[in-house]
Design a protein around this nucleic acid. Structure first.
Lengths: 199, 199
DNA sequence: CATATATTATGATGATCATCATGCAATAAT
DNA sequence: ATTATTGCATGATGATCATCATAATATATG
């Protein structure tokens, strides 16, 4: 064998790590295989001995990013509980470091247009995120906690995206602040009032 | 003159309309000028007599889409007030028709990576959206209403995106439902409790 | 009816896209 | 020390990218 045993695995992990940062910073579509491999210190030729397609790398990179992000949120919850999660997620430093931030906030609309296999992977990670949030809500019945967690995460992710997109710095800060307040209000309100109308 | 007076203006408007749909459906990066013009029934050559760059079209197309979306929301508010807005936005039909839906939900993370001029245009439209929502909240002081509107729209947009991305149809429906309930709870709670801690 | 001109079409630019076939070099196994 | 094999590099594929220069064409003006 030409390189030490385990070299290929290490290279693959390295490519995934570089990709997960570049995808979050520039978007999946804007990142080419050649440029990506150059960033990883390699040439483009070897790529397809690691991955069957760019799409397979997209799945690996988003899983890597999202598992890491979930670990960070779980750490924030050790001391701060749900409030720790919300504050860690909606802090200005997270807004300003999208390459190392939440992949949901960076990529959700783009992933929604990807093939089903990729969306399925995404869905699994999303459920894990929601479960993490639900596990830190005041104890109620599980269904209600999941419903609340879905709304809380939707709010967190939406606020982070909008805070990143606007040009007005004050407005951006207000988006983060109001998102934090509202997420905590939803958490403390316990069950969100269930709505009778079906539409 | 070769075509009737006003023909060029009509052509430009047609290109903008086609672009606003394709951008929302496929993302800005995934849409090429040549394919776009073909969709509009033209060839790619004339494009730069209408727009100085693709980026200029991006601005025109997002403004067109967002003004239209705001008009729809305003219409939903005539009968239903804020609840009408929330229900119109988070209804399954909106989730399933992204090409004609909210451009914020379709494009926010991508726009966050575009040049400042485009983000500035986006910011103006965003403020108008927030003002529309704030104007339908129970009367409090304006600052508090804007804060609530920021959170409500973040929640609406985030929920719509996530409902589009997941593969699990039941989960998708639950995201829309819990987003609706939570948005209405935030609106009815009046002012979200202000938070003393600065971080 | 003839001509000037506004609008779109044709075609080319060099760059980059995802993907793959082949070649090389270095180490592990002998 | 020699050989076999593995992991990456070189280079090519045809397609598409944004952008622009020039040509064709049809109508509005004279």
């Amino acid at each position: 064998m030409r390189y030490e045993k385990g070299h290929k695995d290490a290279t693959r992990k390295h490519i995934v790590k570089v990709a997960s940062e570049r995808f979050r910073r520039d978007g999946v579509e804007a990142v080419g295989v050649a440029g990506l491999m150059a960033d990883a210190g390699l040439t483009h030729g070897g790529f397809y001995s690691h991955f069957a397609s760019k799409e397979e790398l997209v799945r690996a990179a988003t899983v890597d990013a999202l598992e890491g992000g979930r670990a960070q949120l779980a750490r924030a919850a050790i001391d701060g509980g749900l409030e720790g999660i919300v504050r860690a997620y909606l802090r200005p430093a997270h807004r300003d470091a999208s390459a190392r931030g939440c992949a949901f906030a960076a990529l959700t609309p783009e992933i929604a247009r990807h093939p089903r296999a990729t969306r399925a992977t995404f869905t699994g990670e999303f459920k894990a995120h929601v479960d993490l949030i639900a596990s830190h809500l005041p104890e109620k019945d599980a269904g209600e906690n999941q419903r609340a967690a879905l709304a809380i995460f939707s709010l967190m992710m939406g606020a982070l995206q909008l805070a990143r997109a606007v040009v007005d710095k004050d407005l951006s800060d207000r988006i983060l602040q109001s998102g934090t307040d509202a997420a905590l209000a939803l958490a403390n309100a316990g069950a969100v009032a269930r709505d009778g109308v079906s539409s």
